[in-house]
């Protein structure tokens, strides 16, 4: 799979965090980006565009990340969701993985970690 063929949905209430994720991913190519600023927006946007990959924060207004994952997974059990959050407690991690998240990246974002996750996804791992 080629990154330029991907649509990536980035869900974070911080405009800065969204920009940072886009900047990191743009070093690999030119995917199509979509954005959401809260949990409900993430679910709505997912249903609208069916992205290939989702980056999702946990602490968001209206609906938190874990609730958003559950709704997205109910809609599309094959969704690939990566949590990017500063709240990386064991229980949060467990809840996110149980809800269906594929991976978890602790903020501050480590560029190499994000790129490894995306490269693994591209290689079908």
């Amino acid at each position: 799979m080629n990154i330029n063929e991907l649509t990536i949905l980035i869900c974070d209430d911080s405009i800065l965090a969204r920009k940072q994720i886009k900047d990191i991913l743009s070093t690999l190519g030119t995917p199509v980006f979509a954005e959401a600023t809260d949990g409900q927006g993430a679910v709505d946007k997912y249903k609208e565009i069916k992205p290939d990959l989702v980056f999702l924060d946990i602490v968001m207004p209206k609906k938190d990340g874990n609730a958003a994952i559950q709704e997205i997974m109910e809609f599309d059990p094959d969704a690939t969701i990566i949590i990017a959050s500063s709240v990386g407690t064991q229980s949060q991690l467990k809840s996110a993985i149980e809800a269906g998240a594929r991976d978890f990246v602790q903020k501050p974002l480590d560029k190499n970690q994000v790129l490894t996750i995306v490269n693994n996804f591209l290689e079908g791992r």
Partner: peptide, 22 residues
């Protein structure tokens, strides 16, 4: 972006704190 940076710092610090407490 400046305002988001302030919020982000606070969120990052508080997030790391609750991880440490946990």
């Amino acid at each position: 972006y400046v305002q988001a940076s302030l919020e982000d710092f606070l969120n990052l610090h508080n997030g790391l704190f609750i991880v440490n407490v946990s």
